[in-house]
Each structure stands twice: as structure tokens, then as C-alpha cells.
């Protein structure tokens, strides 16, 4: 009995030692990799040459109506002047669950662009929201809350002004609605969006 306990304990200890070793050896690299990934994502909308601050750490959380909470907002600045607000948001209204989007807004409230970060929409139909698959997602660039007017911010299948992906009205509407929600949030928080203190202490 005692011998059995000892064997099990010893093997458990060995396993724990091995795991700690591997964890220590990979920890830094995994953190770097995640940072690099986050930055590569943000640079899809705002190229590196257009800002000079630490984009990944200049961020804060916000509660935006209609979206999964909290959303993370990143700020790009150049010489201290606002360049862009990048919202990493998740809408629960996709056809098969969450759609995670990156929405870029210029300081004047125009949409810089929208990219899909993660989704589980139907391959061949709903996945046309990916920029690699179709230009659909590009139609938001340059739009703002007044263009089209608020009641026209919807899929054309539902009486709005935006193209609808064929056979993917729910997917299309979820994305359009998410962009509108972020723009509405920005319209209400325009004055302090670039003033809110960053949540990450510069390391």
C-alpha cells in the first residue's frame, strides 16, 4: 500500500517537474508570440508607419451596448495626436455564435475599416465576411453614423443601405449592427475616448 502511494507520488512529482521546466522555457516566447499576433492584427487596419505609440498597450476596456462585454479599444497616436481608435469587439448575433471583429475608427468618426478576427459562420456562405474571401467587409470604409443615416444602417435585405451576402442575411446583419454599435458608442464618448488612461502600465 505504502509502496503504491510512493510510486504514484513519485511519478506525479516527475510530471510536475517536467511541466514546470517546459513552462519556464516557453513562457517568454508564448507571451512574445501573443503580443506579435495582437500587433499584426491591429496593423491590418493602421499600418505601422502611421503611428508612433505602443499600440498594443495603449488600450482600455469599454462596455458597448449590443456587444459581448467588455470590448477592448486600442488607440493609435502620432506625436501625441489621435490617429485611430481600434475596437476589438465580439457580437453574439452570428448565425453560429460569436463573431469577433476589429473595427477601426478615425478621430472624426469615419470608419477606417473592419476585419473579422474570428468566426464560425458557414463555410462558403457566411465566411464571405473574411477579407480574403470577398470584398464585402470593405464596404464600411469611409462610412459614418450620418452616412447612411442611422435608420439605414442595416442590410439591404432588411431595408438598409448595405449589401447583404447572399444566403447569409443573419451574418451580414450581425456585422453591420456591430459596426453601428461601435460608431454609436464613439459618438457618445468622442471627447474622452483618447483621454481615458491606459489600463496597461508601460513595461
Amino acid at each position: 500500500m505504502l509502496k503504491t502511494l510512493l510510486t504514484l507520488g513519485l511519478i506525479g512529482l516527475l510530471a510536475a517537474a517536467l511541466l514546470s521546466g517546459v513552462h519556464l522555457a516557453t513562457r517568454e516566447r508564448i507571451a512574445d508570440e501573443q503580443q506579435r499576433q495582437a500587433l499584426a492584427t491591429l496593423n491590418q487596419l493602421v499600418p505601422e508607419s502611421e503611428y508612433d505609440n505602443e499600440l498594443v498597450t495603449d488600450r482600455f476596456s469599454a462596455w458597448i451596448a449590443g456587444l459581448e462585454t467588455p470590448s477592448t479599444l486600442y488607440r493609435a497616436r502620432r506625436d501625441g495626436e489621435p490617429v485611430a481608435l481600434l475596437a476589438d469587439v465580439t457580437t453574439p448575433n452570428g448565425y453560429s455564435g460569436d463573431i469577433r471583429l476589429l473595427i477601426g475608427i478615425a478621430p472624426n468618426g469615419d470608419v477606417i475599416g473592419v476585419r473579422v478576427l474570428d468566426h464560425r459562420e458557414t463555410p462558403g456562405l457566411g465566411d464571405e465576411i473574411e477579407v480574403q474571401r470577398s470584398d464585402w467587409i470593405r464596404q464600411f470604409s469611409g462610412r459614418s453614423l450620418g452616412d447612411p443615416p442611422a435608420d439605414q444602417w442595416a442590410a439591404d435585405q432588411r431595408g438598409g443601405q448595405f449589401d447583404t451576402l447572399s444566403s447569409a442575411t443573419i451574418t451580414s446583419s450581425a456585422v453591420i449592427e456591430a459596426v453601428r454599435s461601435v460608431l454609436a458608442w464613439y459618438a457618445n464618448n468622442r471627447d474622452n475616448a483618447f483621454e481615458i488612461e491606459s489600463e496597461v502600465n508601460s513595461e
Binding site: L18, L19, V22, H23, T26, R29, I30, E33
Partner: peptide, 10 residues
């Protein structure tokens, strides 16, 4: 777990 960590890193 080792494989998972190594894959995340490299």
C-alpha cells in the same frame, strides 16, 4: 501539455 506549450511557442 508539453506538446501544447511547445506548439504555442513555436
Amino acid at each position: 501539455t508539453v506538446v501544447d506549450l511547445v506548439m504555442q511557442a513555436w
